[in-house]
Design a protein around this nucleic acid. Sequence first.
DNA 1: CGTAAAATTGACTGACTTCAAATTCGGTGG
DNA 2: CCACCGAATTTGAAGTCAGTCAATTTTACG
Lengths: 244, 244
Amino acid sequence: MPGSTVLMPFVDKLATHTALSQRDRDAILELPHSVVRRAAGRYIFREGDKPAHCAIMLSGYACRHKILADGSRQILAFHIRGDGMDLQNALLVHMDHSIQALTDVQTALVPAEAVRELAAENPAISRAMWIETLIDSSIQREWIVNVGRRDARSRIAHLLCELAIRQEGAGLGTRDLLFLPLTQEQLADATGLSLVHVNRVLKTLASEALLVRERHQVRFPSWPALTQAAQFTPDYLHPVQNTV
Amino acid sequence: MPGSTVLMPFVDKLATHTALSQRDRDAILELPHSVVRRAAGRYIFREGDKPAHCAIMLSGYACRHKILADGSRQILAFHIRGDGMDLQNALLVHMDHSIQALTDVQTALVPAEAVRELAAENPAISRAMWIETLIDSSIQREWIVNVGRRDARSRIAHLLCELAIRQEGAGLGTRDLLFLPLTQEQLADATGLSLVHVNRVLKTLASEALLVRERHQVRFPSWPALTQAAQFTPDYLHPVQNTV
DNA sequence: CGTAAAATTGACTGACTTCAAATTCGGTGG
DNA sequence: CCACCGAATTTGAAGTCAGTCAATTTTACG
C-alpha cells in the first residue's frame, strides 16, 4: 500500500496504452519524489543543465523551447498533468533545450536513478515508459509536419485539436472545451508564426464559428468542422480506441 | 566469434556514445538478420504497417515522411549507414509515417523480438540503444526549430551541416565534402520550402562561396562560414568530443 | 541519340511579417 | 468601488520572402 498518491496522474497516463497490474501501479507510486511548485514564467530545466531528476507534471502548463541567436523562440512541446518529462535524464550529457512553466505549475521530481532502476527490474513499467517516449516522438514528428507544410489556419487549428485531445486523455475535461492558458505569443512561438498573424487567424476561426473564445478557455462548437479545418487525425497521438 | 560482420556499422554507431565491450559487440553482430536491398524510390515501411522487424541501414540514403491530404509531403528524417530504424517496433500499434529508400539501399532486417530480448538482458546495449533514440528525438526537435524559425537560407544550410556532420560520424568522409544524392525536391520536402525556392537558395549559397556543387556531392570551402550562415551548433547531435 | 527526370529561369502573386499605434483586460492599491 | 498600470490583444498599413505557374535548359542514362 503506497504512502502517497501524488504520482497517480503519471500512473494513469502510463496505464493508458498498456496494462499495469496493481503491483506495478504501487511500485510507481512508491517512487521517491518531492513536489515542487514553479510560478508562471520560471524555468524547470535550462539548456545546458544536466539534471539528476526527471519531472512529472502534476498541474499547470509547461513547454519545451529553444531560443535562437536572433532572440526568436521555438516552442517544441507542451506538457500537462501526467506527462513525464525526461524520464531518460542523465543518459545524455546535457539538456539541449529548456523547460519552462507557462502557468503556475506543480511537478514531482523523481531521481532519475530511481526511475531507471524501476524500469530495469520491471518489464511492464519499462514497456509503458517506452511507449510514452515513442508517443512523444510521434508528436514531435507531427509538429514538423505542422510547421513545415500546413498554412497558418490549419496549423493553429491543428495545435488546438492536439491540446484538446491530450487534455481529454489526461482526464481534464472534454475535447469540446479546451482550457488554454497560453498567450497568443506562446501560440505563435509554437506554430512558427508571428504574434500578429496568430491574432488574425484566431479571429478568422472565431468568425467561421470553428471556435468561441472565452477567458482562458476555448470552446469548439463543431469538433468535426475543426478537425477538418486542421487536417487533424489523432492517429499520431495513439489514442485509446473509443468504445462508442 | 560472430559469423558475420554485416551489422558492424550499427555496432560502430552504438559505440559512439557509450562504451561497449567486445562481448557486447559480438552479441550485436550475432543478432539474426537478413540483408535486404531496395531500389531508389521503393518503400521500406509504409504508414499503417505493423512491421515485426527493425531495419538497420547498411548503405544508401532513406527518409521518413508523411504525405498530407493535398498531396504535399514533409520529410521527417534522413537515414544513413549505421542508423537503426524503429528499434522499438511492435510496441506501438502501427507506423504513423513511411520510410522510403531515396537511393538504392541495403538494410539488415532484424526481428524486433530479438532486439528487445538482447536489450532486456544486456544493460550496456540497452543503454546504447536508448541513447541513439534520444539523439533521434533531439534531431527531431532541431528540425522543428529549423522549419519553424529559420529563413530559407539558414534552413537549407543547417540541413546540409547536419548531414555533413552525421556522415562524418558514420565514417563516410569528412564534413567538408558531403555526399548528397538528394534531388532538390527532396531537400524542399525536408525543409518545408518549394522546389523552386530551394533551387534559388542553393544558387545563392554557391554564389556566396558557401558551397560548391559537384555531381551528387557538395563541397564546403569554409566550414565556419557555412555554420555561421546556418546558425548551426552541433550540440543537438551530441557529437563525440573532438580530441584536438 | 533519345528520352525522362532534374535543374533552372522569369514573371507574377500572395500569405505572412514587420512596424507602429490603439484598445482591452486583469489585477492592485487607494 | 474606482483609478491606474502593465500585459495582452487588436487593428491598420506597408513591405517582403517565398510560393505558384509556366516555360526552357541541362543532365543522366539506356
